[in-house]
Every structure is written in structure tokens, then in C-alpha cells.
Nucleic acid binder design. Structure first.
Lengths: 339, 339
DNA sequence: GAAATTATAATGATCGATTAACTTAACCAA
DNA sequence: TTGGTTAAGTTAATCGATCATTATAATTTC
């Protein structure tokens, strides 16, 4: 029953030649006569010979695989990034393995160690929310394994990165709201320690300044990354006498909370409250009303990250320099902010 | 810079013993004196020795990894199944690699071949929508690699499976609608060739019969798996003079379309139109109104599939018999169908 | 026709680990 | 003394492939 896979040895025996000759013949090494080469390749095809990647990797110290660690797998953003990575990896003939840290540092470490153990040729990673030390990342560097960070990165790490220009993205979202007539724009954001939160905050403030509007700190609300929490925070804001007429949320989840709050209070969207989210999640398109949001071009993020990695894998000149690629986000105007 | 990983040989040299002794000592083989064993294990720990899984797998023909192929990765159902699988795999000390077929047979074949090539010890798979031949699945069997199918399976394949009792689930969803007072229940379903569609159809019809209601074939509507299509189909149904007062949809996506249609026509949910979906997608909980749906207990599906696989991997008696485990779905009553 | 050159293929070491088979020394019994 | 047992290792083959080195045969050169 158990069909043992065909090895190079089987081919050698059938043709009465040595394994090394077979190995060379399969690689079209000109040191082997055309006759032999053709005979070997023909038989290999007939027997459906597939090289054993374990053996090849053991011998050559190259596995032709790259590992990707994402914080979550149930996320259209990360799923699209992975697709972008896969596209590029395909071109280079590499297999991609994905694992998720589930926003836990412990799992992230486990995944990284697993990848290193499996001798993967490179690692692309986005830090989990919980990651606060970087020994496991440093270890990748120490082992000389090429690596690229994306999206959730840290300035403490001297590694090539692909990042979003969060400040610019926030700037264009908020400018759009102002252009639509908003006078008091609330900002729903997350915990202070998150880098992208601080960057988007910067963009928010700059957009206001650029239009000579005052920054009202009471309109900035920090919440957990849950719809419920965002809804409560928004309710609180909307019940004030001097309520906001627009919301910019740091992600779609929080924006959904804001919309839920406005609905509950019977406020019209976008006439009385306009909303712009961030991420272009699948939900944002299909909800009622459809939600304006920032599209972060995740596939491109993936492609850029993979390119940086393969530059290193292919030993391109200057590939080892620490680079930072910025991928811009595009504003998608939908019902929730349409004039 | 590139820190070569520590091998068994390094340890052997430092302690002036042979590699085989080191190998045995690390495994606590009693043929090696306690002294030596302790010395080896101590040094191994100090040097942070990690066995090279490639070498181990090559030699032992066991990789301690299992591969999972899912049709989509951006799906809370499959993501949860994977979590369930990972839980069990963790207990057994196996690594799990996941890849997605993206609903394409070609990609599915590629993934399967990749896993077989990597000599994974077992494969858990859910067929893509496009899969219509099974040579690649048969190949897994022929190679004697343990395998379990889940969710999207085929009766043509003699393989252990974990399936949902779709008929029973549909039955309870529809019964719930009837109990809520529905008289004319529309059924939104997909293409005829899908097995789970036929099963849910069976449950739908049986539930009606059980309550002595007549089956009105004009209330059964086939659509693509898109919100738009479902919305259009629902609009058509709801505009009839004799319109349905409830919808049972084969998945949440279609149910969302039905809700969108009812909203557009200004019909009250659930008073004028009740809706029950299927899958308990994340969206179903947070939308307006929150949607009743069937929870398929995906984590349990994963756990059961993994258990079947490990029974085979551990060579438990009778593990090779083709088994079929049924995981039941639970009705989650939310606003869209609440009386 | 002997030497030099070239073409072609075989040998054997190697990657890092496992393991069957064997060695060596110590110990005990008769 | 002889033989048998046991403990504690060592040797060497092996997994499937790669590759530097070496061997052999064929061909060319003078």
C-alpha cells in the first residue's frame, strides 16, 4: 500500500549508473553525456521522481522556503499581505509557510523558533500586540537569517521594514472629513504605546492645524479594540451638548462602534455624523451604511516585504542595508462620509 | 555573524565521546551511564542545542508535522477549525502548517504535493469549491500518508471525515422560524452540486413537513455566494404579492443579503421578516440587527479531525477504518429572528 | 605508438541525526 | 582458568541528495 517515494538511487539502479551521475544528469550538468542525461530525465519523469526537499535542504543548507508570522490570520489585511508575499515567492520558486501568533508574544517566539529550526531561508514578520521584548527577533539576525518586518514594527530593531505612512493616511482621512464640512472631528484610538496609533494621531492633528482648526483634546478617546468599547466611547461623546459631527477611527472595528452609537441615538449618517475608518475590512463595504475607510494596499505591502527579503536571499548588492519602504494608503469614500 | 547552529557533533567533540553516545544520552537511553547522560544534557542545554528537524526527519522518516489545507484562510470558520487542530497537535508535540487553496483545485493540488514532498506525517483537508477530481487526494492515500477530510468532503472518497449534520442543523433553524410564527419561509441556497447545500435543503424540507407545512418550490432561490446576488434574489421574493415572512439562508453572507433587501423595502426585522443564517461569522454578531445563525462549533470540528488523524499516526487499533464523525451545530438566536 | 588531453562517469565524503551491531573491560560463577 | 554476563561505549551504515576528487575510457597530438 505505502508507495515509497522514488529516490535518486532507484533511478541509478534501474539505469545501472551511479547516484551522483543521476544527480548531475537531473541538473543538466554538461559533464554528463547528452544520452545519459536524456535517459535519466526520461526515467525520472516516468517514475514521477520528486526530489526529497529534506535531503536537499540538509545537504545544501537551503530549504527554498520562507516563513511568515502574522499577528492574526482572520484578518483581511494580513491575509492580503500573505497573498502579496506568495505572489513574489512564487516567482522565485519558494514555498511560503504562514503561522499566526494570535497576538501573543509566546506564540510568536514559538513560531519563530519553529521556522529557524526548520532552517527556513528567510522570515517575514509583523509583531504581535503583546510583544515587548525582542530577543527572539534578535536571534534571527544573529543566526544570519534574512528577515523583514512589516506593519507592526519597532524602531528598536535594526531591520528592513515595510510600513504604512500612517500619519499621511490619517491626514488624508481627516482632511476629507473637513472638506465634507465637519467642524468637530472626534478621534477614536487605542492604547498609547502602539506606534501606529501615535502616527495616526500625528496625522489627525496636522490635518486640523493645516486647516486652521483647533485641537480639542476632549474629542480624542482611547478605547480597547472592540466594537462595544468604541460604541460606548462614542455614545459618551455624542451625548455631550457640544457633540462631534464626525469620527475618524483608528480602525474599522472602532468606526463600526461609532456608527452603532450614532444609529442608536437616531443621528443621521453622514449628514449629522460622518465616519471614516481605517483598513478597508470586508465588513466596511457591506455594512449599512457602507463605510468610508483607508485602504492600506496590503497586497503591495506583502509584495514589497517579499522583495526586500529576496534581495537579501539573492545577495543583491546593498541588500543587507537596513531599508524602510513606505506603502501609501488610499482613501475610499463610501456612504458614511459622502456629502 | 552567522551563528552556525550547534550540532550533536559539537557536543561530542567537546566531551570527547562519540556522536552516537550523545544521541543516546539525549534520549535518556539507559545504555548510557547516568554520569554521561547528565553531562551531555547539561552541555546541550548550555549550548542551546536544538536538533535539526530536517536531519531527524530524513533519518526517521517522521517529521512530526501535519499539513492542513483549507479553502480559504480569511474565514472565521476555517480559522477556528485550525485552532482546534493546533490544540490537539500541541498535545502530541506536532507542528501544524496551514495553506489555503483559495477555492482553486490547482492550488489545492500544489499544496498537497508540497506537503507530501515535505514528508509531512499527516494531512487534514477540506476540499475547495472547484475540486472535481480526486487524483491528488488518492495520491495521499496511495502513499500511505494518514489523512482526514472535514467540512467539504466527498462521498466518492473512502477516507475518515468530520462533517456537520447539515440536515439536522437546517432542521433546527427552520423549526425555530416556524415556532416564531413564520408561515412562508424562503430558502436561499447555492449551486446544486454542493453537498452541504443538498443536505441543508433536506433539513429545510423535513422541518416544514414535520410541522405539516407545504413546500413551496418558488420560495427556494439559488444564488451565487455573494451578498449582492442574495440581496437581488431576496428583493425579487419580497416584492411578490405573496411574500415570504422569513428567510433561512445557507450561509451568513446570503442572510446578510436578505436583511439588506428587507431593509431596503422598509420591512421590519424580525417582525415582518425573520432571518436565520448559517456559520456564525463574526459579522453576524455585530451587524444591525444582530443576526441569528447556526454555530457549527468549528473548533470542535478541528479537534475531532485532529483526533482521527492522530489515531492513525499513533497506529491505534482500528484507526485505519474509515470513520465519520458528526459535529452538531447549535442555534444562536439573535435579534433577526427573536420574537 | 606513446603521451597528452578530453569526455564521461564512479567514488567517497558530507549534511545532522539515528540505530543495529560490535568492542572492551569489568565482574562473577564454577 | 575458562566462559558467560553486563555495563558503557564505539563503529559504521543509513536516510536522500550534493559535489569535490578520482578513475577510466576515448580521442587527439606529435
Amino acid at each position: 500500500m505505502a508507495n515509497r517515494p522514488v529516490t535518486i538511487k532507484d533511478i541509478a539502479e534501474k539505469l545501472n549508473i551511479s547516484v551522483s551521475t543521476v544527480s548531475r544528469a537531473l541538473k543538466n550538468n554538461p559533464e554528463i553525456s547528452l544520452q545519459t542525461r536524456e535517459a535519466v530525465q526520461k526515467l525520472a519523469k516516468e517514475l514521477k521522481y520528486q526530489p526529497n526537499p529534506l535531503a536537499v535542504a540538509l545537504k545544501t543548507q537551503k530549504s527554498n522556503t520562507i516563513g511568515v508570522v502574522v499577528p492574526q490570520i482572520v484578518s483581511s489585511f494580513y491575509a492580503s499581505v500573505v497573498k502579496g508575499i506568495e505572489q513574489v515567492a512564487d516567482e522565485f520558486g519558494y514555498q511560503v509557510f504562514v503561522s499566526s501568533s494570535n497576538e501573543k508574544m509566546e506564540k510568536e517566539e514559538k513560531n519563530v523558533n519553529g521556522f529557524l529550526n526548520m532552517r527556513m531561508d528567510g522570515i517575514i514578520l509583523s509583531l504581535s500586540r503583546a510583544t515587548n521584548t525582542y530577543d527572539h527577533i534578535q536571534k534571527i539576525k544573529d543566526m544570519g537569517v534574512p528577515m523583514v518586518l512589516f506593519d507592526r514594527t519597532s524602531k528598536e530593531l535594526e531591520v528592513s521594514k515595510v510600513v504604512a505612512d500612517d500619519a499621511a493616511a490619517a491626514h488624508s482621512a481627516v482632511s476629507h472629513l473637513i472638506d465634507g464640512g465637519a467642524k468637530r472631528i472626534a478621534f477614536l484610538t487605542g492604547p498609547e504605546y502602539m506606534l501606529f496609533g501615535r502616527n495616526r494621531m500625528r496625522g489627525y492633528k496636522k490635518a486640523l492645524k493645516d486647516k486652521d482648526m483647533t485641537i480639542d483634546e476632549t474629542l480624542i478617546s482611547r478605547c480597547d479594540f472592540t466594537v462595544e468599547d468604541a460604541k460606548n466611547a462614542s455614545l459618551e461623546l455624542l451625548k455631550r451638548s457640544n457633540r462631534p459631527d464626525a469620527f475618524f477611527a483608528i480602525n474599522d472595528e472602532l468606526a463600526i462602534g461609532a456608527i452603532a452609537a450614532a444609529k442608536e441615538l437616531g443621528l443621521k449618517i453622514p449628514e449629522e455624523v460622518a465616519v471614516v475608518g481605517f483598513s478597508n475590512s470586508r465588513r466596511s463595504r457591506y455594512m449599512e451604511p457602507s463605510m468610508s475607510t483607508m485602504d492600506q494596499n496590503p497586497k503591495q505591502v506583502g509584495r514589497e516585504a517579499a522583495k526586500l527579503l529576496f534581495d537579501q536571499l539573492e545577495d543583491k548588492p546593498g541588500a543587507k542595508d537596513v531599508k524602510e519602504v513606505v506603502v501609501h494608503a488610499d482613501l475610499l469614500v463610501r456612504t458614511s462620509s459622502e456629502k
